[in-house]
Write a protein that binds this DNA or RNA. Structure first.
Lengths: 158, 158
DNA sequence: CGGATTTGTTGTCCACGTCAACAATATGCC
DNA sequence: GGCATATTGTTGACGTGGACAACAAATCCG
């Protein structure tokens, strides 16, 4: 039984190691299942590529929208990004501690905070955008150009 | 100003209430941003529609794969779904407490557990699959048939 | 003016990903 | 056979993020 050991080793070693193809059954008909898998890959790649600027996807999106809409309120920003106001408060707290954003008093409405980027915030955002573009290129390569284009067209403006 | 109240109501009521169009800037070029939005909608709708059977997307996927691959191991299941073994242990704990799944001894390997659905598990899974199909139809309507088809084709087998 | 609403905030709870450690079992090699 | 190594399932701990409730300050509106 042990005699042909070396030959056996040459034969298979580790053929695929991904198992003998498990049946996904109904999951094959669930778009959300595959969307989630894409989303997981996207987040992992994004976080890895932006580790240099230490920004999560959520933090990046906050900086981008503030950068393009200086002075907007937290409620408007939260609604835009589809996150809870309570969640945004904590995100801004972290960004403000790093001196990337600031909350100024709104002239028209005493309840509102007018959100702005600091000089450091703008500089970091520029670097982050470049890294995000690299991530986007990686995603395009991962999906293939045709699939990438299709998916973008289908998901845009959702 | 209040005199033509009724007419005004007919006019706009709540035009959009989504604000004056905030600029997403770079996010418009991030496929991951839109994928995440789709994913959030999917999970919310899925959870709501399956609240009757009290199954999360993760629990549903576990039941589906066990149902189609009776006897597989926890490691194989975790690898298939792309979740941690540690996480799967807790998921199975909850499902087993509800008598939906069971871990039997694997004849070939004393370390492995052979996963199976119980009779209750099969019955609940059948109901869950029907609800999941309704969710899928809702998603198709939300996206529109063409976009749905495109997205499915692009995301499949990821 | 006074009730209702909006805005930002805090606290709490729970689901989930991640990682380290561990015991039991199996495998590979001498 | 015996021993190092790997796999499998499990537990504990930590951090993140979403969901809710409650609240004070400010605003709006009749």
């Amino acid at each position: 039984m042990r005699s042909s050991k070396r030959a056996a080793k040459l034969a298979i070693v580790k053929p695929a190691e991904t198992g003998p193809a498990v049946d996904l059954d109904d999951l094959n008909n669930r778009l959300g299942y595959f969307v989630r898998r894409v989303q997981v890959w996207v987040f992992q790649d994004f976080i890895r590529r932006l580790s240099g600027v230490d920004l999560s996807p959520a933090q990046f999106s906050v900086l981008v929208v503030i950068g393009a809409n200086a002075g907007l309120s937290q409620s408007a920003l939260a609604a835009t990004l589809g996150i809870e106001r309570a969640r945004l408060v904590r995100l801004l707290h972290g960004l403000e501690q790093r001196a990337l954003t600031q909350r100024l008093a709104d002239a028209d409405d005493g309840r509102r905070h007018a959100l702005h980027l600091t000089r450091d915030g703008r500089k970091l955002l520029a670097r982050a955008k470049a890294l995000a573009a690299e991530h986007e290129a990686a995603l395009k390569q991962k999906l293939g150009p045709e699939r990438y284009r299709m998916m973008f067209e289908a998901a845009r403006d959702f």
